[in-house]
Amino acid sequence: MKNKLRILTFFLCLSFISVHVNSDAVAAEGDKKETLNVLFIGNSYTARHNLAQVVKKMVEAGNPNLTFNPTTVIYGGRRLVDHWNLGSQNFVKLHQLTPEEEKQTIAGLEKDAKDPKNRYAAAALKRHRQLLKELDQEHPKWDVVILQSYRDDLKGADSLYAQYAPKFAELAKKQGARVILYETTPNTQNAKALKNPPVAAAAVMEKARAIATLAKQVDASAAPMSLAGFHCQTERPDLTLRFINDAHLNQTMAYLTACCLYAALFDRSPEGLPVDSITDIRYFDNKDRTKDRDGNPITTMFSAKDRADLQRIAWKSYQEFKALRDD
């Protein structure tokens, strides 16, 4: 009888240990974080306010078990056509890039860098030489590639953006990455509060339809900033979207942009995200690091109302754009 009790006790202990170990394994699996590797290709409209890092804060706040890993390839004032000439497509296909391809790109940039009018070839050459040195290292495989426009998206199907976004998108798709079109709207951002409703509704919708057609063509999502800016100007005319002393997007527009990118990344509303501040990277007179280009605090803290309105407007704009794309 005692032996039977000992045997029964032994198996009960084994069962308890097994259940405990399995529970720990399940818990560990639940705590395991996934990583989203995202490549941003753009210019100062991506660099300002450390936009990729703002998106990271929003993404990780809204998805606690997700690590957002952004990489940026940025050249000031450059468009996608310029990025192509500077070899940025190599970063899109980084996971499959060969040394021979990178050496060929470097050879072309060495010639271009001799031209004093080519301001960015030298910077690109330095970047690609470093890439060649690191090519045998492990690199992330992109989950998402974000392609920024800049004054190259104003002529519909004839625009340079419409010509080069598909080239980059094709490479991204071959790597298994999704594509997001980040449409900027420097022509419509307001530096002062509006006293009257914006009057560019027809032009905004025409551009939105053109970007939607492009997005459908390349099977992409989008951050439709002309639409978002228009809705913000209509519903919150007291808010400004650019600096007075600097033509770039201000903190408010950067927040709105990050919210639109969040929506495009997850097809989900950014409403309720706790991120409440934006800090620019350019200073007043390039001296006072506590003030932005207009002399206001370098960091904008958004009120609960402003934050809620910007998040709501971003989601509304994204949904409207999505309907245009899927029509």
Rank of each mutant, 00 (worst) to 15 (best):
Q104H: 08
E101Y: 05
F243P: 01
T184Y: 01
T105P: 00
D143S: 14
A113M: 02
I41M: 08
G108D: 01
D82C: 12
E110A: 04
D158V: 10
L12G: 15
P70N: 10
A247C: 04
N90F: 08
K141T: 13
D246L: 12
I298D: 00
Q189E: 04
L171E: 04
T184W: 00
F266D: 03
K126E: 01
L241S: 06
L241F: 03
L131P: 00
T188E: 02
K111C: 02
A28Y: 08
Q89V: 12
D82R: 13
F230Y: 14
A169N: 03
A172P: 00
S226F: 07
N286I: 04
T240K: 09
P274M: 08
R209C: 02
A258L: 08
F168P: 01
G87F: 02
P224H: 08
A304Q: 14
E183S: 05
L171K: 10
L94S: 07
R129F: 00
S159G: 11
T213S: 14
G176I: 12
D152M: 11
T279V: 07
K32A: 13
C260G: 06
V73F: 05
G272N: 04
T71I: 12
Y120C: 06
A124H: 01
V144F: 06
M205V: 11
N196H: 11
K155D: 05
I244V: 15
W315M: 08
H49I: 05
T98W: 04
F266H: 10
M1H: 13
V218W: 03
C259E: 01
F11Y: 14
F10M: 15
D143K: 13
I146W: 00
K287F: 00
Y262E: 04
N286C: 02
C260H: 03
P297E: 04
L194V: 04
F243C: 05
T213A: 15
K32D: 01
A200K: 14
A113V: 03
L265F: 10
I278S: 02
A254S: 15
Y164V: 10
Q130V: 06
F40V: 14
N3C: 11
